[in-house]
Write a protein that binds this DNA or RNA. Structure first.
Lengths: 122, 122
DNA sequence: CTATATGCAAAAAGTTTGCATCTCC
DNA sequence: GGAGATGCAAACTTTTTGCATATAG
């Protein structure tokens, strides 16, 4: 079962990894594994709730072992593309409460903040 | 210039639209426009800051005209797709303040909340 | 006339699927 | 031997690019 190899890679990294990253890591460590198998395994793991999936800015699906290390959002400069990672307990609470008000459960959310950073104000 | 046609479509919708949606809308309204042109136009518009881009859950890039009429966010049911429009003064304030802390100005933001609505909880 | 914009089709990039093979029970 | 896992290659989807043509100034 390649499942454990994939999990091993994910647990060994605090970052989100794309399926292709996982495949490359396994290949690099000498494992012979097909790309399709990696995709099938991560899908299975995601359905079983063992890992979290999310899409990165390149449109790649990325995965992380589930113990939610750091939830954060992005503050992006429209002028230079500089990105700052920000924490927002207030937003988390707001998202949960507004969802609850409407009877929604299992809430997740995405937040992106755009602006012009100090170095690029006219 | 197809630029204005694309902008017209985006300004006519409060929702985020994918390039393909825009293309379909233009075709539906009788315009002869190539898909590639739509992609090129939205990229140009995004670079010039006229529209916001965001990747949706399916990995499609979606766009919205920057001067959105009424500011609101969406609460989307993962099970049935039902969407509720919600207001969130708390998030607005949070976004502004977190951006200000990092020296960002002209702040805009996008927030999407996903959950399972009352009718679709297991 | 020259430069830009457009359309079409082919190419990239990421992901999924079909199918034959291999493995473990 | 059979069920499920795996690998390879082909299919698919979304987005980008090459190139020839059409349009604008």
């Amino acid at each position: 079962m390649k499942r454990d190899m994939v999990l091993g890679v994910l647990e060994g990294s605090p970052e989100f990894l794309s399926a292709q990253d996982i495949h490359a890591a396994l290949r690099a460590s000498g494992q012979k594994v097909g790309l399709a198998t990696v995709y099938r395994v991560v899908q299975a793991l995601q359905e079983s709730g063992a890992i979290d999936a999310l899409r990165n800015e390149n449109g790649e699906l990325t995965y992380r072992s589930c113990e939610s290390t750091g939830h954060h959002h992005h503050l992006v400069c429209r002028a230079c593309g500089r990105t700052v990672e920000v924490q927002g307990p207030a937003v988390e609470r707001w998202a949960d409460s507004v969802a609850a008000e409407h009877g929604f459960a299992e809430v997740s959310h995405t937040v992106e903040v755009f602006g012009i950073c100090g170095d690029h104000r006219s």
